[in-house]
Amino acid sequence: MCLAIPGKIVSLVPDEPHLGVVEVTGVRRRVDLGLLVEDMPKIGDWVLIHVGFAMSRISEQDATEQMQLLTMLGEGEAAMNEVRGYGLEERGDFRTGEKHRLGTGKTPTVQ
């Protein structure tokens, strides 16, 4: 649980400024951005996520490498389960039709 998961901010949640939607290898979930209020990420930025909270901003290259690292540590699957398990998507989220502006850049994948 010490290892952090890289994700890309794909949208911000209207009316809930502390929430953002991240995408990790194609899976989208809401995460809390409250720990980054002093340096708020924008759509398209990459962050490291720990227990459902974005804890630091990173570069896209670092994000790719972090995902590779998780895969090599045998934690790629666990990381994706964790992301899928984040329960915050339930209070009206992207699946209710809210549109996303997708940033550019490729999403790192778990092999």
Partner: peptide
Amino acid sequence: RIVYSPADALQIARK
């Protein structure tokens, strides 16, 4: 219950 985030535990309480 297994949660992946403290925020999820709070969400269980809301529900």
